Amino acid sequence: MRQLNIATHSSAQKNSILTRIATRAIVLRGEQILLLFTERYHDYSLPGGGVDEDEALQAGLVRELQEETGAKNIRNIEPYGVYEEYRSWNKHGYDLLYMKSYCYRCSIDDELGDPQLEHHEIQNAMRPVWVNIYDAIAHNEETIVNSDKKGLSIERETFLLKLIAEELVES
């Protein structure tokens, strides 16, 4: 899979590193993209998340996409690229998180089922939405500049959305 980016946040110090492997789903319909809107952070992100130990990447992608969006009949899964990042992490005895996100394009049925969100996702008021990709990019850019609510993943998500719009959205 091609390398999309390696980002090291300015606060990152490489001492005690926690490695996390994740997948991200790219589901497009023209300029519409299936994203998660998180009220707490006021941002859009690709569906996906951590891959369980001994879980294949594509199996993790399917599980996360189903859980977070209620997607049905996930198919035509194709590798898109890998985004790597280092960021500060002050939990569980680690001071640095190394996140490797495997991004995949895929198709789903038109109708979404009920998401099976985790407790923290419900607390953060996360919900799946179909949104115009250019509107999502503009919204995230506005949040980056003007919001003190933004989360640590917004730079990754905005980078990926811009790349997807440039390379995959049909004009």
Rank of each mutant, 00 (worst) to 15 (best):
G70D: 13
E84R: 11
K91P: 00
L117G: 03
Y86N: 08
K149Y: 08
G93R: 02
D114F: 07
R63E: 13
N124G: 04
W89E: 00
G93Y: 04
I74L: 12
W130R: 13
L65G: 11
L57H: 10
E142W: 08
D148S: 13
E64S: 15
E121V: 09
E64D: 14
I133E: 07
F159Y: 14
G93P: 05
A71T: 13
I137F: 02
G81Q: 07
N140T: 02
E85P: 01
G60Y: 03
D110R: 07
A138K: 10
V131N: 05
T69A: 07
C106I: 06
Q58V: 13
Y102K: 00
E157Y: 07
G113T: 09
N90M: 05
R127A: 14
G151A: 02
E84P: 02
Y134H: 07
V131D: 07
G151C: 05
R105P: 04
I133A: 09
M99Y: 04
S88C: 00
I108D: 04
S101D: 11
R87E: 12
E155P: 03
L117N: 03
H120F: 15
G113C: 11
R156L: 07
A59Y: 04
E118P: 04
R127K: 15
F159E: 10
E118I: 03
E142S: 10
D110H: 09
L57T: 05
E157G: 06
N132M: 00
Q116E: 11
N76W: 09
D114M: 02
K150I: 08
R75D: 12
R105W: 05
I108A: 05
G81R: 05
K91Q: 09
Q66E: 15
G70P: 15
N124D: 15
L65E: 10
Q116D: 13
G70Y: 13
L152H: 10
S107N: 11
H119N: 12
A136Q: 04
G113V: 12
E68V: 06
S88H: 03
H120D: 14
I108W: 05
I77Q: 08
S101L: 01
S88A: 12
C106M: 12
H92L: 06
E157K: 00
N132D: 15
E84W: 00
G151P: 05
L152W: 08
K100I: 13
V145Y: 04
T69L: 05
N146L: 10
P128E: 00
G70L: 14
W130M: 14
V129N: 09
T69F: 09
K72N: 14
W130G: 14
Q58I: 06
E121I: 07
A138S: 11
L97F: 01
L97P: 03
Q58P: 04
Y80C: 03
P79A: 14
E155H: 12
D109M: 08
L97Y: 00
Q58H: 09
E85K: 09
E142T: 12
I154M: 03
E157T: 05
V131G: 03
Q58L: 08
L97E: 00
Q116P: 00
H139I: 02
I74G: 04
V62Q: 14
E141Q: 13
H119K: 13
E157I: 06
L163F: 02
K91A: 07
I164C: 08
E118R: 15
M126P: 03
I137W: 02
R105C: 09
E121K: 13
A136M: 01
V82E: 02
S88T: 03
I154V: 15
K100Q: 12
Y94C: 04
Q123P: 06
Y104P: 04
K91W: 03
K149C: 06
G93M: 02
I108Q: 01
